[in-house]
Write a protein that binds this DNA or RNA. Structure first.
Lengths: 152, 152
DNA sequence: ACGAAGTAGTGCGAAATCGTAGCATCGGAG
DNA sequence: CTCCGATGCTACGATTTCGCACTACTTCGT
């Protein structure tokens, strides 16, 4: 009954608001944890998606991160210029293409990953219960938001 | 074992990453849910903090939302210009001041609140368990991130 | 097979973000 | 009281975000 549940926030308390608040804190933490790696929190997340996906189209990436197409487009341009991402022609749709991490991109992600994991460890250590539980809650919430968004 | 835990994301799975993902989805949902109200998700969140706080300094707000001072400064300028926020001199520190919602700001928040609550309802309805549980997980996570951030 | 309608991505411009540098004020040490 | 380091905020500018309008290709209906 202090700090985050203090006087400031009473009626504004709800899952969406808390998600916003928590994410901002997470990003701030990561931005400083990743200082010096050349990647910021956003970059690291995108690289992670890319790495997990192997090859995806900009559109898929946009859907994954709930971002507008133009934003992803800008990301791609930047990451390609940085030499961390490569564009591969799409075999079945010539309007599109696919993107992958280059070796340099992969390595940047791996390097930054050390610092990331350190910060993640700190957070998990400070967590008063298994991280898996929290994660499951986030997944459930994410799915619920997705369902709500699909509802016209 | 579908959708959000699909093939794209395996090793990248952790609380911080999931927080980022979920928050992006939440913001996207709210941005569209709040369309036409004149406020976007970010605005609504800030107004909520302001409303809950009554009067706070820009610095306090910055800390609350884990944002750099300059960003908050820009927000304040914008919201003041919009007529939704008012600056009140700080009685104990002349470097600073306090901000509050004006009546117009309060009303804008209340109006937008209808649409917000509708979206929130959709999300909560799609949630496979009590929202309070998820919220508690978010609080715990937020506190843990705060602890990790304080650790030099 | 053809045209209309839908979908993938991008150029551009307006607005937002936030680091750096700088100013005003505060508060503690001597 | 007088410094002086610490703190609160902001001007500025480089970078990022994203809505709108547009082009290129795909797909569906007939």
């Amino acid at each position: 009954m202090r700090d985050r549940s203090s006087s400031v926030n009473d009626e504004a308390s709800n899952v969406l608001f808390d998600t916003w608040l928590t994410a901002r804190a997470a990003i701030a933490l990561l931005d400083s944890a990743l200082a010096g790696t050349g990647l910021d929190a956003e970059d690291f997340a995108v690289y992670s998606v890319l790495r997990g996906a192997g090859e995806i189209t900009p559109g898929e990436l946009a859907r994954w991160m709930s971002a507008p197409a133009t934003t992803v487009s800008a990301h791609v341009k930047r990451l390609v210029a940085r030499g961390h991402v490569r564009q591969v022609p799409h075999p079945e749709d010539r309007r599109s293409y696919r993107i992958t991490l280059t070796d340099a991109g992969l390595q940047a992600h791996t390097t930054a990953g050390r610092q990331f994991r350190s910060a993640l460890g700190d957070v998990e250590a400070a967590l008063p219960r298994p991280a898996g539980e929290v994660q499951q809650a986030l997944r459930d919430l994410g799915a619920a938001i997705g369902a709500a968004a699909r509802r016209p």
